[in-house]
């Protein structure tokens, strides 16, 4: 699921307009962004199951997607954000980064370790919603609808009122443009993920 993660960032931005959207978008995918070089170098691996379609994978991301590893990454990201944009933004960004692990916990098969490197061979976590693709896709659609609509409403609200903002029409136009591009990318990312494109 990557559309679902982006949708969370859109929803958080709607409620916290002071935090830059780019940081939330990057933050919500940070675990997977760090996963990419580790995957390329063979430190973390992935094996497909079934026909290798939507969600048909067991991901051995034992460092980036371990509970403690994800918490550590979230805390570091939160500290950096807090240093740049203030303490509240730091808490928000740390939460957004960790939200990735929470959503993955819901959809992943039992492949999420508790400690980095699966230290201690503790039980692996994952509720496995990916085993029911229709339910998993429905969850992503729901997240997109909530995140997209909250972002659209908050963007328009940021344009202010026509009688108070001299540049109201320009601001409103930009808010609509930003919302439309956001909605299109959310839908496109879900479609490509669902069809296994890329």
């Amino acid at each position: 699921m990557f559309a679902g993660h982006f949708a969370v960032a859109a929803a958080v931005k709607a409620k916290n307009p002071q935090v830059p959207l780019w940081s939330l978008m990057l933050g919500t995918q940070l675990l997977d962004v760090i996963f990419v070089p580790l995957f390329v170098s063979g430190v973390e691996t992935m094996e497909t199951v079934g026909s290798a379609g939507y969600g048909e994978a067991v991901i051995h991301a034992d460092y980036t997607h371990s509970l403690m590893g994800a918490l550590l990454i979230a805390i570091v990201a939160g500290i950096l954000a807090g240093y740049r944009w203030g303490r509240r933004a730091g808490y928000i960004l740390a939460s957004v980064v960790f939200s990735h692990w929470i959503l993955d916990l819901v959809v992943h098969r039992r492949d999420l370790p508790i400690l980095p490197g699966n230290l201690g061979d503790l039980p692996l976590l994952g509720f496995g919603l990916w085993q029911w693709p229709a339910a998993s896709i429905a969850l992503e659609v729901l997240l997109i609808l909530i995140g997209g609509s909250l972002y659209f409403r908050s963007s328009l609200a940021r344009a202010g009122r026509a009688d108070l903002n001299p540049g109201y029409h320009q601001t409103k136009g930009r808010a609509i443009m930003a919302s439309c591009v956001m909605a299109a990318l959310l839908v496109l990312s879900l479609v490509t993920d669902t069809l296994g494109i890329g």
Binding site: F6, A9, W22, R84, A175, G198
Partner: peptide, 30 residues
């Protein structure tokens, strides 16, 4: 591949478009 593309698009394109909303109101964008 599509993952990297979407991270870039959301981070750069959406981030830039969103920041323009505040710029048009004369607000400081960090």
């Amino acid at each position: 591949m599509s993952f990297i593309l979407f991270v870039l698009l959301f981070t750069v394109l959406c981030g830039w478009l969103d920041a323009r909303i505040d710029v048009s109101q004369g607000k400081d964008v960090k």
